[in-house]
Write a protein that binds this DNA or RNA. Structure first.
Lengths: 138, 138
DNA sequence: TATAACCTTCGAGTAACACGAAGTCAAGAG
DNA sequence: CTCTTGACTTCGTGTTACTCGAAGGTTATA
C-alpha cells in the first residue's frame, strides 16, 4: 500500500495532481485509512498509470472520467471503450513521430550553436540580423 | 508572405495561438501589411517553428520570450543560449523515450481489449471487479 | 510535551490558450 | 454603388488543469 507521497515519487506526478485526479474520480479503487489518508494498492497504482498515459495522449480529465465510468459499467461498454483506446493509440503514435522530429530539430540546433561558438559560421540565429541569401538557421 | 490563416495550416497551430505568440513577442521578425494584418515571411515562419518546438519541450511562453530576447542581443549571449538549447534537447530526448513507452502501452491496451472482445479473457479491466489473484490488466 | 513530518480539505491564483463580440478593409455580385 | 462575404483586427471574458498555500488533524520521535 502506497501513500500519496510514495505514488508521487513512483509515477513522477505531484501530490497535488494525484489528489486532484482521485477527487475527480479517475481512480475509483483508491482507499482511505482510518485517518482518511489516501492509500493506493497495486490496482490503484496501475489505474493511475493508465490515467497518466491517457492524459498524456491529450485526453481531458472530463473525458478520462467518462472512460473510467464506462469501465465501471462492465462488459456492455467494451466496444465503446475499445474505440476510445484505438483513437488514443493513434494519437500516441502520432505523438511519437512528433517527438522524433522535435529531438532531431533540437539536436541540429545544438550542433548549429556549436558551429557558431567554434566560429565556423556567423551568428545568423539572430532574427533581427537575418539577410536575404543568408542560410536559415532555425 | 503568409497570412495568419496560412501559417495556421502550415504549422498546425490555431490562429488564436499564433496571434497570442506574436503579441507576446515570440516572433520578433513578423511584419504588418498596410491594413495592420500580420504577415509572415520565411524567416518569421522558421522562428515560429522554433518557438513551437521549444514550447513542446515544455518551456513556458515567458521563458521562450527570454530566449528570444537573448537572441536579439547578439553574439554576447551565445553561450547562455547554447545552455538553454542543450537543456531543451535533453528534455526532447526524455520526451521521446516517454512517447515510445506510451505508444507501447496503448498498443498493449488495444490488444488486450481485442482479446477480451474475442472472449479469450474475462473483463478484468473493470477496477471495481478486480480481485486478489486475478491478473492485472492495466 | 513539543516538535516534526506526514496527511487532510478548501479556496484562491495562474498559464496558456479558447472563444466571441465588435469593428475594419478589399473584392466580387447584382 | 451598395451589399454581402470573408479574412483580418483588438479586446475582454471563460476554461482547463493544475499550483500554491493556509489551516488543521494524527502519529512518531526527542
Amino acid at each position: 500500500m502506497y501513500t500519496v507521497k510514495e505514488v508521487s515519487k513512483l509515477l513522477g506526478l505531484t501530490e497535488h495532481t494525484i489528489r486532484y485526479y482521485t477527487d475527480k474520480g479517475l481512480v475509483p479503487s483508491v482507499q482511505r485509512d482510518k485517518n482518511n489518508n489516501r492509500l493506493f494498492d497495486e490496482e490503484s497504482l496501475n489505474w493511475l498509470i493508465g490515467v497518466k498515459h491517457l492524459k498524456q495522449c491529450g485526453m481531458s480529465v472530463e473525458d478520462i472520467k467518462s472512460y473510467v465510468d464506462l469501465c465501471l459499467e462492465g462488459r456492455s461498454t467494451i466496444q465503446e471503450r475499445y474505440g476510445i483506446i484505438m483513437k488514443q493509440k493513434a494519437t500516441a503514435l502520432a505523438q511519437l513521430e512528433e517527438a522524433k522530429q522535435r529531438a532531431k530539430y533540437m539536436e541540429e540546433k545544438a550542433n548549429h550553436y556549436l558551429d557558431i561558438i567554434n566560429e565556423v559560421l556567423p551568428d545568423d540565429t539572430n532574427p533581427g540580423k537575418w539577410q536575404k541569401n543568408m542560410p536559415i538557421a532555425h
